[in-house]
Amino acid sequence: MKKPKTQPETAKSSGTAASSIKKWLDFDLDIDSLPVPPPRESAEDDGGDETPLLSRIPKSAPRFVYTALAAICSIVLTATLILTVEGMPRYGEDQDYMDTVTYEYITHGMEYTGAVNIVAGIILEYRAFDTLGESFVLFCAVTCVLVLLRADSADSQPEDVVFRDLSHDAILRRTVRAIVPLVFMFGVYVLLNGHLSPGGGFSGGAVIGAGLVMVSAAYGGDVSGRIVSERVFKIVTTCALSFYCLGKSYTFFTGANGLHSIVGNGTPGDILSAGLILPLNVAVGMVVACTVYGIYRMFDKRSF
């Protein structure tokens, strides 16, 4: 499978932009001169070694050294933390040095963000960049789980996969049929009321994801695959994160330059108020729901 050696020369000889970009990307990488990795041996290949596993640990300290060091470490950590608590101000006391940031958030929060829930105003208006990073963390987590746990269709399934399929259980179906409409309704309510009462994107999205998990567990992958398939998952997460980026960039730009933005604040207390907080809650909730459902499907069926 050796490629012809003339390939780098032909790339250098043609002077178009595509070939120069390709040369920059390749970093003068010659695929043929890389060392060939050794042939991959099977997982059970021990070299014929018959000694039991625990006596094979080579050249390390006796076991009690690690236990003693761990005990010393734990005791030092606990003592340090308890001493720190002793030096802290009293619990529940009104601190005179409550910093100006908190004062600013409470007194000017509602008129600046339009949200009655001050915490939602903080995480989605004052500190919206951190919430975007959190959504990215969730997306990265589900991507890592996808990479680690997805089984190709060529891999053989274990023999007991038929017995592990518990989706036709009568008790589960009756309970899910009774509970799931309430779960979805409650999830949507929590999601949409993030700026008026405790709730918001993360908790509402988790509830909706739990509802999807229940449907998938009780009725099998076919029914829930009609709601959230792999294509839907990719489209929804990408669109939600892109909408968050673009929408928040727009309000950052107009807010920093003193321009008038088309997303107003509205009257506090209405459902359609608080600027972009309601759409951002919906976007974050979609990402969280897809993440929770995706992680469940990866662990259960090893594929979407």
Partner: peptide, 29 residues
């Protein structure tokens, strides 16, 4: 709790809301 009631925005009536937003990030992580 830091949810504005009846338009009362004086800071002496509400609990500190900043640690609550830090906890939200922590739970997701």
């Amino acid at each position: 709790a830091p949810i504005v009631e009846n338009g009362d925005v004086s800071a002496v009536h509400y609990v500190n809301p900043v640690p609550a937003s830090l906890v939200l990030t922590g739970i997701v992580v």
